Simulated assay, not measured.
Amino acid sequence: MSSPVSPDHSPRRSQVVMVEPALSQLEKLTARETHRLDRTIVAISVNPELGTPVPDTLLRDYIDDVDGVRVIYYVTAFR
């Protein structure tokens, strides 16, 4: 019999906070588009380094070709 995985051993996910322009865009998405975006945000929260750095900024640009989603984001010191 196996024991449940301790929270100490699960991967740490980053906290995701949406800024106003992103919130406005969310209101225009269909349920299917929101679902695809959710999967992409989970992937980024698990590995914030997925995106490509945008030169001369703190921004990162991540494109999920499978789901057809592009997210531009930044990572803080708290991740």
Rank of each mutant, 00 (worst) to 15 (best):
L26S: 05
A77I: 11
M18L: 15
S6K: 08
S10I: 13
F78P: 00
E27W: 11
A22C: 15
N47S: 06
K28S: 15
I41P: 00
N47P: 01
A43P: 01
H9G: 12
T34S: 07
V17Y: 12
P53T: 10
R39Q: 05
S45R: 04
T52F: 03
T52K: 11
L26I: 09
R39T: 02
V16Q: 07
P11S: 15
I44V: 11
R39W: 12
V42Y: 09
T52D: 07
V19Y: 02
E27P: 09
D67I: 00
R60G: 03
D64S: 07
P48F: 05
S10R: 14
T76F: 07
S10Q: 13
A31F: 00
F78I: 13
D8W: 15
P55Q: 04
Q25K: 12
S3F: 12
R32P: 02
V19R: 01
R12F: 06
S45V: 04
L23W: 13
D67V: 06
Q15N: 11
V54A: 02
L59S: 07
S10D: 11
N47I: 07
Q25V: 03
E27D: 14
R36V: 01
I41V: 15
V5H: 05
Y73F: 11
V16I: 15
L23C: 13
Q25E: 14
M18H: 13
S2E: 09
D56L: 04
P48E: 00
A22Q: 06
R32V: 09
